[in-house]
């Protein structure tokens, strides 16, 4: 009897087990697209969207001396009465205080100029890499990636050593009997730091784009009477625009929010939004204003990107 019951129970489990397997098969076969998308979706939800909403929420609070140092959004007053407190003063404050507006403008200016400099330096470099022989190409690409193997912070400190009043460059200048130049803690040093750090992010997408370029197009242009400069403007440049856009975005976006470089190389003389954010957060312990600064930065960065995507979408439609 006992054994029989055991067998029955066993076969029952088998049946439900195979049903489960069937069900799983069904889900995998019919919903695999959803399943595949679900993983990155959950990842983004937990690690991007949720923190963003927390920051967003804090931006509409008031700073208090407490832990956490901001007022809650939802409070229960007495019994059963919900009190929602939304403060927009933080954003108004950003707008009214010249410091913030100027800092945003300065950040955008510095990252725009840096992006253009990266493009001017990176474009010919990417071009040269693509046109070089197979072995040279790999060595050059390796050299582009090599700095990533050293800590970013260390590399910026190295620049401090190079650019300082009594740094290597000024030592060489004085050795040649020239006047030393003040470089560290100037805008110049910040440009050097940003261009140096973000150049690979310009070169790599450009390289990837140019690698796919059909070089017979350039021969065709030359054959039809275009001099090298004309060929560049009429054929090469239009064909590499996707690479230029990708590289520019990869440089412009992180450069705008850059904190370490302006802090270490610019000192107190170069105001960029990353430093302001840091100060609000750590020195002033004003989390709501810091969050408002972050949200405003996001708008500054996301709006032009959305505009670009919208335009691109239109162009693809019209094709």
């Amino acid at each position: 009897m006992n054994t029989e019951a055991g067998l029955e129970a066993g076969s029952g489990a088998e049946v439900s087990g195979s049903m489960l397997a069937n069900w799983a098969n069904h889900v995998i076969h019919h919903h695999w697209r959803t399943l595949v998308l679900l993983v990155p979706f959950i990842w983004l939800l937990i690690f991007f969207l949720a923190p963003f909403f927390i920051v967003f929420k804090i931006a509409f609070a008031e700073a208090v001396i407490a832990s956490p140092p901001y007022t809650p959004m939802i409070e229960w007053v007495d019994e059963g009465i919900m009190h929602i407190r939304v403060v927009i003063d933080n954003f108004a404050y950003l707008w009214e205080d010249d410091l913030y507006v100027n800092t945003y403008l300065n950040s955008v200016k510095i990252s725009t100029i840096s992006t253009i400099l990266c493009l001017l330096i990176g474009y010919p470099m990417a071009y040269a890499i693509v046109r070089s022989s197979h072995t040279t190409k790999h060595i050059l690409l390796m050299l582009i990636i090599l700095p990533f193997w050293t800590s970013f912070l260390l590399r910026v400190y190295a620049w401090m050593g190079l650019l300082a009043d009594q740094g290597l460059i000024n030592d060489i200048l004085t050795w040649f009997g020239l006047e030393p130049v003040r470089m560290l803690y100037t805008q110049f040093a910040v440009y050097v730091g940003i261009v140096y750090t973000y150049l690979p992010f310009m070169i790599l997408p450009l390289y990837a784009n140019m690698e796919k370029l059909d070089w017979t197009l350039l021969e065709a242009a030359a054959d039809l009477g275009a001099r090298p400069a004309t060929t560049f403007v009429t054929v090469t440049l239009p064909a590499t625009i996707p690479g230029i856009v990708a590289g520019a975005l990869l440089v412009f976006i992180p450069a705008t929010g850059e904190y370490v470089i302006p802090d270490l190389l610019g000192g107190g003389n170069v105001l960029m939004i990353g430093r302001v954010l840091y100060n609000e957060f750590n020195a002033n312990i004003d989390w709501p204003v810091a969050s408002a600064v972050a949200i405003a930065l996001l708008l500054v960065l996301v709006l032009p990107m959305m505009l670009y995507q919208h335009m691109q979408g239109k162009e693809t439609e019209s094709r």
Partner: peptide, 15 residues
Amino acid sequence: YERPVNMMFQSYALF
């Protein structure tokens, strides 16, 4: 670009 010849490419090389 200074020769009086033109070429039709195998891949056509249309822009």
